[in-house]
Each structure stands twice: as C-alpha cells, then as structure tokens.
Write a protein that binds this DNA or RNA. Structure first.
Length: 268
DNA sequence: CTGATAGGC
DNA sequence: GCCTATCAG
C-alpha cells in the first residue's frame, strides 16, 4: 500500500470516528433527557427560550424551565399559549410530583406543607387544560414557587387570566414566568425553598412577524391596582434576574422592544 | 379560576 | 400514599 493511500484511509477512519462519536454524544444527551423526565421532549419551545443562569434547562412536553438548585425552584418557566390550547375541560387535580428530569433533584412538595404558602404554579394549570397529560405536567415541583394565597388567588390570578385573554385575542402568546431569585431570601422546608419577594411575567406576541412584548413585575403581595400599573420594561426584569429573555431576536429589534415599558399595543 | 385541608381506606 | 369531600380567596 502506498503511503498516500494509508494516510487517506486513516483520514477517512478519523472522520467516521469523529462523526460516530458526535452522534454518540448527541444520542447520549437525548437519552439522559428522555430517561430522566416524565416524558419530556428535547425540541419544545426552542425559539423563544431565555438564557439560563444556572445551566440546567429542562424540557417537558408542554413547557420548558431553567432550574435553580440554590433556590429549589425554576428561575423561569417558558411556554407557548396558543389559542387552540384554551380549553374548559375539567381535569381532576393530581398530586404534585418531584420532577425527575431535574438532575440536581427538584424540591419535594412536602417543603410547602404547613408552610403557610401556596404551591403556586408558574405555568398555570389553567393554561394547560387541552389534555390531561398537559394538565398533569404542570403539577411537577419544578413548576411551583411559594406564594401567599392572597397574592396567588388575587392579582397574580388576574394576570394569568389576562394572559389567556391575550392568547385568544392575539392567536397565541409566548410566556415566561418566574420569581426574582437572589441570595438571602426567606426559605421554607428542609430543602430551603426560597420565597421570592417579587414575581415577573414576560409576554411576547408574534403575529405575522410583528413582534411586541410586555413585562410585569409584582411585589409578592396582593393588590387591587389595575394590572397595567405593574408593567415594566423587559430590560428591568433582565437587570433583576440576569436572564436574557429573547436572545434569538435580531439585536436591533430586541434592544428596542426590551427597553420599552409602553403597553399601548395591548388591550387591558 | 387560584388553592389547602380533613378523614377514610 | 391515594382518594373524596369540603372549604376559602
């Protein structure tokens, strides 16, 4: 065999090897995601996902989240609420379940027991009523945060209902929700689940390529004020959380939209 | 809608 | 632990 032929064969084998190894790594990663969770999907909500400050993004079939082990809850939960998702179907309320897809171990629901705080959904059960599976999936402990009942059933509930109104009106919106997580927060339970002092919700509508967004920042207490009083710029929420919400958007569009706290394009 | 809790098996 | 009934904002 000529020297050149030998080199060619080695080169080809090397390329095949690299390709095979890459394929192996990809499959390995997918396998972990699939095996670890409760039927999570690896390609859900890929476009508008925010960045993760914790490095642990988990995809479920009907929402995605970034888990903060330090605070034992998600720093964000993101999902698309399409008009077709809106449903009045009643499902029996299931038990909360530890999210096995969170590799560092999601909080146990018992941390909340007798804590005085609600197990407050981040992705609301009311937004995932289109199938039993979608509904049950919101009852994972990675999707909840300690919330005062007056807040949860009060202004926060009003905001969630308004989001459903916008989803219907705009033929779907993209939603990102979470508590403002930081050091030194009050905690509940053996696992020290942090109690946020504020919660945020960022909403994006993309109708025919005309993107608009809206962000809310609320103190963790009930209020009778109108919802528009809580509108802030996305930049404000980014400054508080360190999260980059829509990195996929073209910078010029992203910068302009995220700096604005104007809500004239949204009907309340 | 948003939830917790009591009591039976 | 699971299930049903009841209650509250």
């Amino acid at each position: 065999m000529k020297k050149n032929q030998l080199y060619s064969i080695i080169a080809i084998l090397l390329i095949i090897g690299i390709y095979a190894y890459d394929h192996y790594l990809n499959n390995k990663e997918k396998t972990i995601v699939v095996d670890a969770g409760k039927e999570p999907k690896s390609d859900t909500n890929t476009y508008y996902l925010p960045t993760s400050t914790t490095g642990q993004i988990v995809h479920h079939q009907n929402y995605s989240l970034s888990y903060s082990e330090a605070h034992e809850q998600a720093e964000w939960v993101a999902y698309e609420l399409k008009e077709s998702h809106l449903s009045t179907t009643n499902h029996k309320r299931p038990y909360f379940e530890i999210d096995k897809a969170v590799k560092t171990g999601a909080a146990d629901w018992r941390n909340y027991k007798n804590s005085g705080y609600d197990r407050g959904h981040l992705c609301p059960a009311g937004d995932r009523r289109f199938t039993k599976k979608a509904h049950d999936e919101t009852f994972l402990t990675s999707n909840i945060s300690p919330q005062e009942h007056q807040f949860n059933s009060g202004i926060w509930n009003r905001l969630e209902q308004k989001v459903r109104y916008w989803a219907k009106k705009n033929d779907g919106v993209f939603v990102v929700t979470g508590g403002i997580l930081k050091n030194g927060l009050k905690t509940i339970g053996d696992e020290k689940v942090a109690v946020p002092n504020q919660f945020y919700k960022v909403i994006l509508d993309n109708t025919n390529g005309r993107i608009k967004m809206l962000a809310f920042l609320m103190d963790h207490k009930d209020s009778n004020l109108p919802l528009y009083k809580f509108v802030v710029s996305v930049d404000k929420v980014e400054a508080l959380t360190g999260i980059d919400f829509f990195p996929q958007l073209e910078d010029s569009i992203e910068d302009k939209l995220e700096a604005s706290s104007n809500y004239k394009n949204w009907s309340f």
